[in-house]
Computed example of a mutant assay.
Amino acid sequence: MRMERERPAAGPLVRGFGAGGYRVDAPDGTMGVYPALLLTATRADNWAPPPLDALDEAALAPLLGTPIEFLLLGTGATLRRAPRALVAALDARGIGVEPMDSRAAARAWGVLRAEERQIAAALYPLDH
């Protein structure tokens, strides 16, 4: 699927996704494809996620060094709950967790960044 937005957001944008992963435009004009992805307002990084049930703060460390309101958690092909311990740990930092399937999270990323929301995203592979 290819996605277009009327108002571009600052930072990396998910331009599409498919079997190979997420197509991301970086702020420097380069494009990359990532099977699993960590996003902040300034960077996109490949990610080797643990099983969702084992997801913890350590796996999200690259995202937690920046001020964020909440984390978009793309849980793969279907919506799954985030681990309770992770939700509690992030809540203690003042960070909310919004789990959704990874396609929805990829679409929401651009909308929320266009609103200049301070968010981060962790997107599991679509075949997960």
Score class of each variant (00 low, 15 high):
2 R>M: 12
2 R>H: 14
7 R>K: 10
9 A>T: 02
9 A>L: 02
10 A>I: 03
14 V>M: 08
14 V>L: 09
15 R>Y: 07
15 R>Q: 15
15 R>P: 03
16 G>Q: 13
18 G>Y: 07
19 A>T: 12
20 G>T: 13
21 G>N: 11
25 D>F: 03
25 D>L: 14
25 D>P: 02
27 P>H: 02
27 P>G: 06
27 P>K: 07
27 P>R: 09
27 P>F: 06
27 P>C: 08
28 D>K: 09
29 G>V: 06
35 P>M: 06
39 L>D: 10
39 L>V: 05
39 L>Y: 08
39 L>C: 11
40 T>D: 10
41 A>K: 13
41 A>W: 09
42 T>C: 12
43 R>D: 15
45 D>P: 01
46 N>E: 15
47 W>S: 01
47 W>F: 06
48 A>P: 03
53 D>M: 08
54 A>D: 10
55 L>I: 05
57 E>G: 07
57 E>L: 14
58 A>V: 13
58 A>Q: 14
58 A>P: 02
60 L>M: 05
61 A>P: 02
62 P>C: 07
62 P>H: 09
64 L>D: 00
65 G>Q: 12
66 T>K: 13
67 P>E: 12
68 I>M: 13
68 I>A: 00
68 I>S: 01
69 E>I: 00
69 E>Q: 03
71 L>T: 00
73 L>T: 01
74 G>N: 08
75 T>G: 01
77 A>G: 13
77 A>Y: 09
80 R>I: 00
80 R>W: 02
81 R>G: 02
81 R>K: 04
81 R>I: 00
83 P>E: 01
85 A>F: 08
85 A>E: 12
85 A>N: 10
93 R>A: 02
95 I>H: 00
95 I>M: 00
97 V>L: 07
98 E>N: 03
100 M>D: 04
101 D>A: 08
103 R>M: 11
103 R>Q: 12
104 A>T: 13
105 A>P: 02
109 W>D: 03
110 G>K: 10
110 G>F: 06
115 E>W: 05
115 E>F: 01
116 E>F: 06
118 Q>Y: 04
120 A>N: 03
120 A>M: 01
121 A>N: 10
122 A>R: 06
122 A>S: 07
123 L>R: 11
124 Y>W: 12
125 P>T: 07
128 H>V: 10
